[in-house]
Structure formats: C-alpha cells, structure tokens
Design a protein around this nucleic acid. Structure first.
Lengths: 201, 201
DNA sequence: AGCATCTGACAATGCTTCTTGTCAAGTAGC
DNA sequence: GCTACTTGACAAGAAGCATTGTCAGATGCT
C-alpha cells in the first residue's frame, strides 16, 4: 500500500480501474444473459477473468456492481438519444419519432444490454430501485422537453402523465423484447409515439 | 389418511381448505406489508397462526402461495371493475373514467393489497411472471373493450399499444402509491384516462 | 376411559452463496 | 539473484432459510 509499483507498464491505480472496468463489462454480459438473480459473484468474476477478491476491491456488493453496469448501459443510451435529438431539427413529433427509432434500434442492436436495462434492473433492492427511478424521470423529462418544449416540462401538473408515458414505452419495450423483436423498429417506434403524443397536448 | 374424522365440526377437507385460505390471507398481509422478498415461510405461517408443515400441505413453494395471493387480490379487483362497467352505461370515455376511478379507489382503500398487486408481484420468477403478464393482458382487453368496442380489441395490430397503455396505468399507480396517495383519486384517474384515450382512436 | 388421529412447537438437516483468509507462483526493481 | 509486492487459485467460515422429522399434547370417536 505504501509504494506503488508499476506492473505490466501500468500504475496500481490504472490496474485497479482496469479491473473495475472489466468487472462492469462482465456484469453487463452476465447479468444481461443469465439474469441478475441467477448470477453469482463467482460467475461475474470468471467472466471478467478475475478472482473474487478483486470484486470486493471495487464493489461493496453485487447491487453496487449492478448499478455501475446499469449506469454504463443507460449513459450510452441517453447519449445516443441526445445525439439524435441534436441532429434532428424537424417538428416536435418527428423529432420524437426519430428518438424512439434510435431507442428501439439501440436495444435491438444490443439485446444483452437491453435485457439488463429494461428487465433485470427492476426490483432488486432500494438502492437499485432509486437509480432506476431516477433514470425513468430523466427519460420522461427528455420526452417532455422534446414534445412540449414550453414550460410544461417543469410543471408538477403533468408529473403522473409523464411517468405514465415512460411506463408505456418501457412496457412496450418489454413486450417487444419478449416477442423476440418481432415487429420492425419503425413499427414499434410508431406505436410508442402514439402514446408519447399525449405529452404534446 | 384412510378415515376422515370430524374436528371442530368440520371435515378434514374443510379444515384443510380453511388453513389454505388463512395462509392466502396471511400472505396478502405479509407480502403486501414487508414485501415478498423479505418475507419467509415462517413469517407467513406465524401470521396465519399455523406452523410450517401446513404451508407444505397446501403449497409447493412460496411462489405458489404468492400466485394464489395475487389471484385472490386481482380477482377482487377485476370483479369490482366489471361491476362498475356493468352499472355505467354512458359514453365510452365516461365509462372508462368511472372504471379508472373505481380502480384507484380500490387500491387506496386497500394499500396492502395494492402493494402486493402492483409492486410485489413483479420479477419474482417465471411462473409468477406468467400469471402477472396474463393479468396485464386481461386488463388491457378490458380497457380496449370499453374504449374501442369495435373489432379492434382482437386486432393484433394494437397489441403493443394496448400493452403500453396498461404499462402506463401501472406506472402511474406505482408513482401514486410511492407518493403516499398524494393526488386525489379523481385526479389520478383523469391522468390515466388521458393515456387510455389513445385506445379510442 | 382408551385409542386413533390431528395439531403445534421446535430441532436437525441440507443447501447455497457471500465473504474472508491462506498460500504458492509470478513480476518488478535493486 | 534477491527481496518485496502483486496476483490467482482455492478452501474455510459464516449466515440465512427451506424443508423434513420428531414428539408431546389436544381432540374426537366408541
């Protein structure tokens, strides 16, 4: 602990954060494929090519790793949607449609991350629930900003409606994933848009 | 097993099904208050005033008991909605509004059952998920029948939209419960109706 | 009253996983 | 090459709970 020695050309700090990252990526894979409930600490560590001790070096618990994995996936997704939003400058509902297409396309392109993001995150524990709820609110705010750019975004009045719309999109996503991505990205985005348009009123 | 003796004036069969019922009612209370995850077999049995052996007499696993408890609660709710639907003969959206009011009122009147019905049922296991998904479909069909009494109810076309609307109502319910039933039943029902009206198109 | 059945309390077992500890093998710096 | 640090493999301990088994006491029938 006192001295930091170079190993493989990397400092102790670099090696540790590299291990952390390997664990997060392994967690996305393992939790997304087998499901969080069925995955053990051991399984994640094996997938990361590390032993259990390195798990406890970076994370206090499985839930902490799940949160890290979820945030990695969701930030990628939010960033993607933000890019689409910036690029698209049409009418509000057209813009929203483009974002929904990007959303569903991203989930289709990464089914493992999708499962983690949409299914596996729910009802794990209070701490995880809090993170997930915060992301849903962010998602709702994003939709609201896109469809009703007025002051309505911060009105408390539409809070429940906004939550409802987000719940609708998530439920549509769940059913779509369960169906094996049966419908086309375009069609699903269109269905979701129908409900999102409630926010434009 | 060979002979059936009367006990307390009841046959063996009666006594057994009485115990089963006590377990189900206890499960609604315990799972709804403490949460399914935090509840042990022992806790449910104590709440029912029975010992563990009687749990295994009537149920194969905790999940089986959860399913029974969920079905008890959800049948009560569906029956209530059906009654309201039968009594109300106004316009489609008025009728739907009345049903939503009854739905939210019922959940407010029975917070424990509500928590079981809305929160605790999710993501327990494949068997439970199947039961919950079936109820959501039934719920969607009910809304669809009310708002779009035409053939659209059985059209596969609106399947995802219907699922989305149900997801919206459930998410609104979750947020409302988490808020401690802050908004009035009328207001919440109104918010939910806004989204439900998508089905009327 | 006497016997068969039923009921309740509780202990024993078993299983699974987390979490920590030990030890040998590997690697860098002197 | 020697020493100190780092890593990986693995086992031991601990904790929690489900599930089954035992046994004494209670209840109804004859």
């Amino acid at each position: 602990m006192a001295t930091e020695r170079q190993y493989g050309g990397h400092s102790a700090e670099e090696r540790q954060s590299a291990r952390r990252e390997r664990l997060v990526e392994a967690a996305i894979r393992v939790y997304g494929e087998a499901g969080y409930r069925n995955a053990t600490v051991k399984a994640v560590c094996e997938a990361a090519g590390l032993t259990e001790r390195y798990f406890y070096e970076s994370f206090e618990s499985s839930e902490a790793l799940l949160i890290a994995a979820f945030e990695t996936v969701s930030h990628r997704l939010i960033d993607c949607l933000d890019r689409v939003r910036a690029q698209h400058a049409g009418a509000a509902d057209e813009r929203c449609h483009a974002m929904l297409r990007a959303y569903f396309q991203a989930l289709k392109d990464d089914p493992v991350g999708a499962r983690l993001f949409v299914l596996e995150i729910a009802r794990v524990g209070p701490a995880v629930d809090e993170v997930a709820a915060a992301l849903l609110r962010e998602f709702g705010a994003l939709l609201s900003r896109t469809l009703a750019p007025g002051a309505s975004a911060r009105l408390k009045k539409g809070e429940l409606v906004r939550a409802g719309v987000v719940g609708a999109v998530v439920e549509i996503t769940k059913v779509w994933i369960r169906s094996g991505y049966a419908k086309s990205v375009d069609a699903v985005a269109g269905d979701a848009l129908k409900i999102c348009c409630v926010l434009a009123q």
